[in-house]
Design a protein around this nucleic acid. Structure first.
Length: 566
RNA sequence: UGGGGUGUAGCCAAGCGGUAAGGCAGCGGGUUUUGAUCCCGUCAUGCGAAGGUUCGAAUCCUUCCACCCCAGCCA
């Protein structure tokens, strides 16, 4: 008879999302032999957490199904694009852990072929040069509820169109004086089909093609054909492009393209208490609300990297939020969970006192020093142990001492005991105050024979606090970050999103004291400062030999809730 | 008021005619030399609403409602 030994539920796998299902079906039905996707950023800003979702999706799908994924810079608008952005994007994709197939692609590499396809359209009578100004074109386009009217130039001869387009290309016509439009249907209910502009004159230097061109293709004209050139099978974009799909398909059907890519849309990522719009992020940078695109408070990939987020935590986050077609706003706690999850498992532990308070051990010889060893991680023995110097003068965190407190407070209180992490149990006797009544020193006694042991008298300490040696520690600054916006949906209801900026998003602590082992900290490498949170050295802020640590995220803090209730 | 989409818990999200997965957050408890981690429990008589079909509906049909996107020579 069968037993239940195998009846345990198989590790429940994440259910496939709609794009995985489409790909499985296409592969099974033989529609495609293998898949090709692409991540197509415009190099006009730094990548943010929303792009991470797209990157994980496109590269992830290719990896999962044994296909390929290209990195393509969609650089059809030289006015906004630059090499700086190209470089940052390459760095971010690589850092996230993905590798693009073959060489990096640029839509601008296809400008010649795109131009020829424009000629093909003109010759077929499916495109024309329109002399309407931008304002006039808007009037002719109609509205959401009214059909548009045909441009007066709609029926120009092929020859004339060819000649005019040639002049556009040669730079003989002024910017804005005319454009090349696809001849589709000015009364189409889908406004994108009302004779969309496919080429415009821009006498602008291009970061990749220099001054070769003074006409540039529009996104709609360039994207699908670029996909076709690269043999992209599944062209994945965000929901707002859904209305463009008929146009995408119109070009593919009406042009002699080498392949027939298909477009699919998914919902972009929204995170509460965060803005994910290049325009807004650029504004924060340009107007000095943050230190730059990679300010640790920014939701950019470079900012998060500097803050201490790990590639694995971001990938895991993108995996957990799912891929659907419904608009959604993910709670930041989901992201925070992912970083803590990764860092808890992998970050070596260390002690750092953020707000030092002198602790004198009155029964410990002033000339004595011990060295304790502490594990690198409470449940991993593959991480190196650390050495902790100990002497009669120590520093503890000011928050960890109170003259008196109720029983919920499990730290140091006069007359009570507490465990110094990895060292002795101590008991506080008195504290010293300055003229203003501020506590400046605590005097305590060690309880003998309590390193690794409970007190022999049976009076166990209720809590554990961290500390650092008074004579042998590393001085450092610590930057504590809070959310950049104090409203869940910055800019909601037509408000200026800048009004939702959290004035306390940054707190710089100076005079912090860390255990000596942290002297060897490397930038971006995560440490858990025990009882505080996860931190990493910031190479840019650290100068003059004084290390500066960024707090990636604090530990979950159930004490905060308890203490606020009282 | 045209076209295109989307509605399952506070948030994300499975489900595709057989009686509401999972995760995050929350709440309760246990372990603990991190008030962390970890572990256990709890959390939708309900699937935007109302009708209808069916033995049976989140799943099918009808109507309605809400929200998002589109009128750049931006992407």
């Amino acid at each position: 008879m069968s037993d239940n030994s195998l009846a345990d539920a198989p590790a429940s796998e994440k259910p496939a999302h709609f794009l995985q299902n489409i790909i499985k079906r296409d592969l099974a039905e033989g529609k495609v032999a293998s898949i090709s996707t692409r991540f197509p950023p415009e190099p006009n800003g730094y990548l943010h957490i929303g792009h991470a979702k797209s990157i994980c999706l496109n590269f992830g799908l290719a990896r999962e199904f044994g296909g390929q994924c290209n990195l393509r810079f969609d650089d059809t608008n030289p006015e906004k694009e630059s090499e700086e952005f190209v470089e940052s994007i390459k760095r971010d994709v690589t850092w996230l852990g993905f590798e693009w197939s073959g060489d990096i692609r640029f839509t601008s590499d296809y400008f010649d072929r795109l131009y020829n396809w424009a000629l093909e359209l003109i010759r077929a009578g499916k495109a024309y040069v329109c002399d309407l100004s931008a304002e006039q074109a808007r009037e002719y386009r109609g509205t959401l509820t009214e059909p548009g009217r045909n441009s007066p130039n709609r029926d120009r001869s092929v020859e004339e169109n060819l000649a005019l387009f040639e002049k556009m290309k040669l730079g003989e016509l002024e910017e804005g004086s005319c454009s090349l439009r696809a001849k589709i249907d000015m009364s189409a209910p889908n406004i994108n089909l009302r004779d969309p502009v496919i080429y415009r004159i821009k006498k602008v230097h291009h970061h990749h093609t220099g001054d070769t061109w003074c006409v540039y293709p529009s996104y709609d004209f360039a994207h699908g054909q670029s996909d076709a050139l690269e043999g992209i099978t599944h062209s994945i974009c965000t929901l707002e492009f859904e209305d463009h799909r008929p146009l995408y398909e119109w070009f593919i059907e009406n042009l002699s393209v080498p392949a027939t890519p298909k477009q699919y849309e998914f919902a972009r990522l929204n995170l509460n208490y965060t803005v994910t719009s290049k325009r807004k992020l650029r504004q924060l940078v340009d107007e000095g609300f943050v230190d730059g695109w990679d300010d640790p408070r920014m939701p950019t990939i470079s900012g998060m990297r500097r803050r201490g987020y790990t590639p694995a935590s971001l990938r895991n986050f993108c995996e957990r939020i799912g891929v659907t077609r419904s608009d959604s706003v993910v709670d930041v706690s989901m992201l925070e969970y992912c970083v803590r999850d990764d860092l808890d498992k992998n970050a070596p532990r260390a002690m750092c006192v953020l707000r030092p308070l002198k602790l004198t051990l009155t029964n410990y010889p002033a000339d004595k020093q011990e060295i304790f060893t502490a594990p690198g991680h409470p449940n991993r023995d593959d991480l190196a142990e650390r050495e902790l110097p100990f002497s009669s003068t120590l520093y503890i965190d000011a928050d960890d001492f109170r003259e008196e407190a109720n029983k919920k407070y499990k730290r140091l209180v006069i007359g009570k005991r507490v465990r110094l992490r990895n060292a002795y149990v101590i008991e506080a006797d008195e504290c010293v105050k300055d003229d203003d009544g501020n506590i400046v020193e605590v005097k305590a006694r060690i309880i003998e024979n309590t390193v690794g042991l409970d007190p022999e008298d049976g009076v166990k300490p209720k809590g554990v606090i961290h500390w650092v040696c008074g004579t042998n520690h590393l001085k450092c600054d610590v930057r504590l970050y809070d959310r950049l916006f104090s409203e869940a949906n910055p800019g909601a209801g037509g408000e200026d999103f800048l009004k939702a900026i959290n004035p306390d998003s940054l707190e710089v602590l100076t005079g912090c004291m860390a255990e000596p082992s942290l002297a060897g900290a490397e930038a971006e490498k995560a440490y858990q400062f025990e009882r505080e949170g996860y931190f990493c050295l910031d190479a840019d802020y650290s100068k003059d030999g004084k290390p500066v640590f960024n707090r990636t995220i604090g530990l979950r803090d159930s004490w905060a809730k308890i203490s606020q209730q009282n």
